[in-house]
Nucleic acid binder design. Sequence first.
DNA 1: TCATTATTGAAAATGATTTTCAAAGTTTCT
DNA 2: AGAAACTTTGAAAATCATTTTCAATAATGA
Lengths: 150, 150
Amino acid sequence: MIAEKKKAFNAFAAKKGLRSTRQREVILDIFLSTHEHLSIEELYLKVRASNPGIGQATVYRTLKLFVEAGLARELTLSDGHTRYEHQMAGEHHDHLICLNCNAIIEFEDETIERLQKEIAERHGFKLVTHKMQLCGICPSCRKAAIEKVS
Amino acid sequence: MIAEKKKAFNAFAAKKGLRSTRQREVILDIFLSTHEHLSIEELYLKVRASNPGIGQATVYRTLKLFVEAGLARELTLSDGHTRYEHQMAGEHHDHLICLNCNAIIEFEDETIERLQKEIAERHGFKLVTHKMQLCGICPSCRKAAIEKVS
DNA sequence: TCATTATTGAAAATGATTTTCAAAGTTTCT
DNA sequence: AGAAACTTTGAAAATCATTTTCAATAATGA
Ligand SMILES: [Zn+2]
Ligand SMILES: [Zn+2]
Ligand SMILES: [Zn+2]
Ligand SMILES: [Zn+2]
């Protein structure tokens, strides 16, 4: 799994004539070892913990490469911090986000995806991608809110 | 229509103890006179054209008030410029956006809205709002692309 | 090895938005 | 109306995520 993605990145790098550097390997390892929707800042801190010396700019630059290589997806929630998550070819999901605690739940809904395509077609658009975020209050925050009242 | 919205804003301002100022009236008039998804910059330029002297900060502050008052909706597309559009109670639409020319088409789809609610419920969330943008290539950009090839 | 070219880190730049603050304006009370 | 109390304003400064710059360093291929 991780090895495959590394291979995929190397293939991308080779095709693009990118050089293989320690920094990119470290950042790729750390990115692949996470399972959350991490911000650059969080990623940078993780990187720096094991590899002081790697700069933020390199983390910014490298994550953009991962997106280009199809390994990562950029998420822009409304907190002003760009986040990255794993992306595998052919897979897709959208997000349910708690407005209170920022918890993120992933979901897929084929019917919605199909309807989106239909809407685009109806307007003559060729659909390339979409962004969908459902924002609400998660179960534990709801419970906490109820307890506070009573 | 416009008069109603002005009344609504005045009611909001009164309830909040806001003072009525020339700047806010001017900005509200200009905002209500538009029918697009305008960025603050665009709005500021329009305001300044008839009222030099009104500062950007005031435009920023005032548009936030309109959102709070329920008259405006903030849109964050991916070009780094926050945009505002009219919002009327009980109405809702989402956007189809051309990745090439940035054209914005509005649409509503009740089935999607219902499914979103169901997804949220299935995960125990209380749905508060959502963001959905379909990104693609609009008819005229598609045509232009085809002509370029042939 | 050497020449070429890409990458890096630190610091500076950018650019949208927010904050600061003194001056100006609005409201309230007398 | 006049004065005190409080809000709003504009200009400039500050903020803050991200991007760019650039000289130094590293990777590549001949
Ligand atoms: Zn929560
Ligand atoms: Zn996700
Ligand atoms: Zn277009
Ligand atoms: Zn719209």
